[in-house]
Design a protein around this nucleic acid. Structure first.
Lengths: 191, 191
DNA sequence: CATTTATAAGTGAGCGGTCACTCAATTTCA
DNA sequence: TGAAATTGAGTGACCGCTCACTTATAAATG
């Protein structure tokens, strides 16, 4: 790794850690620089603004995750298998870089509006899989967005509670349960 | 309503609306005052700081919701009925004052650490109900926090997506589905 | 090789501007 | 008329960002 790339990476990691610990608005450029062991001005050799740095970090993970989920579900046959593939991939991403994952989770509100409509999107991947399964009558036909939200919530709320420290350990340890639970949500019979 | 109480209520409502629309850190005291049609200084007659105003709003809803959920589930017999009572109560609170609800939902991260341990807590209510049901062998025994998170996620993620505008309409219209889905999550068989 | 030249990377004091908060003066109203 | 409520210009702290300058690295030259 070149020296410049190393500096940039150190800045990103420092920013990420502080953003998760104290929030984006509450983190100063001076703090980021200190944590990365560079001068404040150096930040601006690599990023046009603090806001852009924050957005870069978010979008990179957002797109990466969306691509990975799309790849993961593709080879799986049938909704049940696709769900498990998606859940496994999601949990692995979370466990691999928990700080980045937590940052993405905690800052959706701020950045999601800045995501272009045509950009790969984790939610869309899930939504499409569910939509297909409804068309194929694998599960009852319902409001896709509502059902997708509920299924996604099974995993995402658990991840959120891990951020809060309400429980510990790898998310990947519970892939089977998450997949079963999400499947159960999607399969709820109409009355 | 006395004049002073009216002013305080207007300030709270103005702050709430702005906090939801633009975020707490991004909202200035000048904006709050303007939206409430008072001078900036008036804020400080009723609140010691902007931060305390934000915390007050959060805690009032947090405690109110916790109390309401505890009340709602008490008379219901059996886990299935308790879940439905909790879900219904939660959705009604959301629909009754959506701005306040959205504020609470979007700012958990910032304020949850400031909630005293002994304070009534919406999550604890749900957790305890599930814990009881496990003891009574109504549902499989599992990691309570994990299962509670997943069940709660069914409803909360849907609420979150409503905040994002991914779908519209009252949450209360879907109480039955949420209850069924949460129940399904809790009932997932161990393999 | 040594030496000059060119470019990239890093620095930190300081600037312009914002913002939460204060307070002396003014208005409201019982 | 006196206490309570309100006002808004003013204050000081802070913060993102700039920029003139230094230092490290690489390229060119003879």
């Amino acid at each position: 790794m070149g020296k410049a790339e190393d500096t940039k990476a150190r800045l990103e990691r420092a920013a990420l850690t502080l953003f998760v610990a104290r929030g984006v608005a509450e983190t100063t450029t001076k703090e980021i620089a200190m944590a990365a062991s560079v001068a404040e001005g150096t930040i601006y050799r690599y990023f046009p603004s603090k806001e852009q740095l924050a957005l870069d970090l978010f979008l990179r993970h957002h797109q990466g995750l969306a691509g990975a989920l799309a790849e993961a579900q593709r080879p799986a046959m049938g909704l049940r298998a696709k769900i498990e593939a998606i859940v496994r991939c999601y949990c692995e991403w979370a466990d691999r870089d928990w700080t980045l994952f937590a940052y993405h989770l905690l800052n959706q509100h701020s950045f999601l509006i800045e995501v272009p409509d045509d950009m790969a999107n984790p939610v869309t991947v899930v939504r499409d899989v569910i939509s297909q399964a409804m068309k194929a009558d694998e599960i009852p036909r319902r409001n896709v967005d509502l059902v997708a939200a509920s299924a996604i919530g099974v995993v995402m709320q658990s991840a959120t509670y891990k951020v809060y420290g309400r429980f510990t350990g790898d998310l990947s340890d519970h892939v089977r349960f998450f997949a079963d639970a999400a499947w159960a949500v999607l399969s709820v019979k109409e009355k």
